[in-house]
Amino acid sequence: MRELKSDRQHKITFTLDGRQVSGDAEPHLLLSDFLREKLGVTSVHVGCEHGVCGTCTVHIDGKAVRACLTFAVQVGNRRVDTVESLSNNEGELNDLQSAFRKHHALQCGFCTPGILMSVEHYLRHNSDPTESDVRDMLSGHLCRCTGYVGMVRAIMETAAKRKSGI
């Protein structure tokens, strides 16, 4: 049993968006701060820092979770994916991101990275959601500028296209 001391930096190695990376963190460093400040992943946004707003949502081992309610030391040897993993190397948007653009599902974009990560996980397990299912899933995110109508349209369209294999 290894105890990680509070006043020391501990090396954490894990897979970030498909690449193996490592960085140093004290035990109380939140994953959200670790990604932004130590690894420069500023697409992980920090809003409320107590799990309510959802903008810091990332995938850990494929599941959408709050990075602000996770410590960096907990992700050693695990897989973390951020919104950066959705587009390809040329920066082309994926189908969900394109649908968000088409349906004006974002305005300032602050809440968007977290929402996209939630939707990606959700659609993997719910390929044929109803509008009310989608709204229920979106209740875990706060958007304060454009509202949710465009998002629901974009998500419903993406779900339908993925289901029919287009």
């Binding site: 290894r2 990680l4 001391k5 509070s6 006043d7 035990p27 109380h28 939140l30 107590h50």
Partner: peptide, 21 residues
């Protein structure tokens, strides 16, 4: 909105966790 510093153990078994407690 940041936690105070603390030590951290990732317990591998219930016995290990109980020993910490």
């Amino acid at each position: 909105m940041k936690p105070v510093p603390f030590d951290y153990v990732q317990a591998q078994s219930t016995e290990e966790a109980l020993a910490c407690l």
